[in-house]
């Protein structure tokens, strides 16, 4: 049924030579390559000379620009800023280096292309194609050689040898898999915990002081970190990647979720700052609606309703940290988050 499925010979493109006049029988025939049209430069030596001058000047300009490049490198102080009209304020050195380099390279390129277009022969040449497929005799020869080789090795006859070889060639490379084990630790329960624990105070990230309820005003968004964590700690980034908090204060009657209200203190609620979509830190707060927005893919969470997702690609609510006021009047955690913070993963239950 496959009428396009021809024998190898028929797959060769049809014969035909350029320059062949159209046969009367076929009104669509290829008229053949038209005769070469000489360019101005081919017949007028003055035009050719002009092209030569243009190219020579372009190459000379490239040399001058290269000197300009070296001069810019040596002479322009690196902190100097200049105003360049539509662009604005830019580093003078970057502008000069890029400009001179660009001009030098462009001059070489344009010169070479102009040379090729105006002065090199533009007579079109014809080269015949040959089929990629080998002729049948070659194909047969290769198959015969292969069979001879296979027969010489006896790999077909000595099955034990063949299987043993295959076994060795599979197992030995596969054994390299163990090499990857030390790339990192096993996940164990690492993703389930943060450094928050009962009694840890909430430290205001803007002034490094423990937060009191009265520091947090209705309508504000405060970022907090756990007590005892310092920027200079070796594991600061790892700790904060999960422990970062954002704290809001709502009027208690506005809180729709009962448990959420219970886990806060007089309307002060502490949520994980880590978006549950793919983990960007959330940064935008809309006071009227109590919505926070993740700048990465616009997931929006309702902090008045237990951190529920109201828009965007996030799949589950923001975990809330249970807080209370300690004996000295500071806000402190009542334990770790009850759910893993951040993006979802296989081992996470609900």
């Amino acid at each position: 049924m496959t009428h396009q499925d021809n024998s190898p010979e028929e797959r060769l493109p049809e014969a035909g030579k350029p320059g062949k006049p159209p046969k009367l029988a076929d009104p669509f025939a290829d008229p053949g390559l038209p005769p070469h049209q000489p360019r101005r430069q081919d017949i007028d030596e003055r035009a050719a000379k002009r092209s030569e001058h243009v190219v020579a000047r372009l190459f000379a300009t490239a040399v001058i620009a290269a000197f300009g490049f070296i001069a810019s490198y040596v002479l322009i102080p690196k902190e100097k800023v200049v105003f360049i009209f539509p662009v604005g304020h830019v580093s003078a050195q970057n502008f000069a280096l890029g400009g001179t380099l660009g001009i030098a390279l462009l001059c070489i390129g344009v010169g070479a292309i102009h040379w090729a277009r105006t002065l090199m022969s533009d007579v079109e040449h014809v080269s015949e194609r040959h089929p990629i497929e080998a002729p049948p005799q070659v194909r047969q020869q290769v198959f015969a050689d292969f069979q001879q080789g296979a027969a010489d090795s006896a790999i077909g006859r000595r099955k034990v040898l063949r299987n043993a070889l295959l076994g060795a060639l599979t197992i030995v490379p596969l054994s390299a898999i163990v090499l990857f084990r030390d790339l990192g630790p096993l996940p164990e329960k690492k993703l389930f915990h943060t450094v928050w624990s009962s009694g840890k105070r909430l430290i205001n990230m803007s002034d490094d002081r423990p937060l009191r309820p009265e520091d947090i005003l209705v309508g504000s968004l405060t970022f907090a970190q756990p007590e005892g964590v310092h920027e200079s700690d070796a594991d600061f980034q790892v700790v904060m990647a999960k422990a970062a908090l954002m704290i809001v204060r709502l009027i208690p009657t506005e809180i729709k979720d009962k448990q959420s209200a219970d886990w806060g203190h007089q309307g002060i609620l502490a949520y994980s700052k880590i978006c549950t979509h793919v983990g960007c830190p959330i940064s935008l707060y809309e006071q009227q609606t109590h919505h926070v927005l993740c700048p990465c893919h616009q997931s929006t969470f309702d902090l008045a309703d237990g951190g529920r997702v109201i828009f965007g690609p996030a799949g589950h609510p923001l975990p809330q940290l249970r807080i209370a006021v300690d004996s000295q009047g500071y806000l402190a955690a009542q334990g770790d988050f009850d759910k893993p913070v951040g993006p979802g993963f296989w081992e996470r239950s609900a």
Partner: peptide, 9 residues
């Protein structure tokens, strides 16, 4: 013109 399956110009 002149450019066929058989050649390259």
């Amino acid at each position: 013109p002149g450019r066929t399956e058989k050649n390259v110009i």
